[in-house]
């Protein structure tokens, strides 16, 4: 079982029990993405909520920033095995987006769509009751394009690819439809505590 000659250079750095299996702590904030970094101007930015193909409501940057802003400090876990504790975000809870649209979550699943054309799926239960937000700020400053700005989804309890960067909209779906990453070998749910990294893990 043990690898000959391997002792482990360092511990996971974790005395808190907050680092899931197979992860290690980092101080910096590595960047991952599938393509070039899109640069979305705030004047052109919009966020659209859809049920199936039907748009429910759209917000401009100014309108979106006028929604209630919530602070959330959470541990995040990337599927490439780094974890980072106590990352401070500010943004709009999915609950507050739904409230502003005047609806309750219409279906059990959702797809997050990004400006670069990518998407990822998340069950609705993981988005509501304060669990997820559309983040606009990190460490008190506007999100940089590298980290998904102007706005990214933040679903901190799932692997971080679920926290779609360059978010453009949220679409509720009847079925659990695989997003871009999930069609390409990544897990449908992505719970770091169950090491759901790849399809069927």
């Amino acid at each position: 079982m043990a690898t000959r000659g391997f002792t482990g250079r360092r511990s996971t750095g974790d005395e808190t029990g907050r680092v899931p299996p197979g992860q290690h702590l980092v101080e910096d904030f590595p960047v991952l993405s599938a393509g070039p970094t899109p640069r979305v101007k705030l004047d052109d930015w919009s966020f659209t909520l859809k049920t199936g193909p039907r748009p429910v409501k759209s917000w401009s940057w100014a309108e979106f920033n006028a929604l209630p802003i919530t602070k959330m400090t959470r541990d995040i876990h990337c599927v490439t095995t780094w974890s980072k504790l106590n990352t401070p975000w500010e943004g709009v809870l999915v609950d507050d987006i739904l409230a502003d649209a005047g609806i309750a979550a219409p279906t059990g699943f959702a797809l997050a769509h990004s400006y670069d054309g990518y998407s990822t799926n998340v069950p609705t239960a993981d988005l509501i009751v304060g669990k997820a937000m559309v983040a606009l700020r990190y460490e008190g400053a506007a999100l940089t394009p590298d980290h998904g700005g102007p706005a990214r989804l933040l679903v901190p309890h799932l692997y971080f690819w679920k926290s779609a960067k360059w978010l453009h909209g949220l679409q509720f779906t009847e079925r659990d439809e695989a997003g871009f990453w999930e069609l390409r070998g990544y897990h449908m749910y992505g719970d770091p505590w169950r090491e759901q990294r790849y399809t069927n893990d």
Partner: peptide, 14 residues
């Protein structure tokens, strides 16, 4: 790739 130490500690990289 994952390496396992005698005490069960593991390191994984791509």
């Amino acid at each position: 790739v994952r390496l396992t130490a005698p005490d069960g500690y593991r390191a994984m990289r791509s």
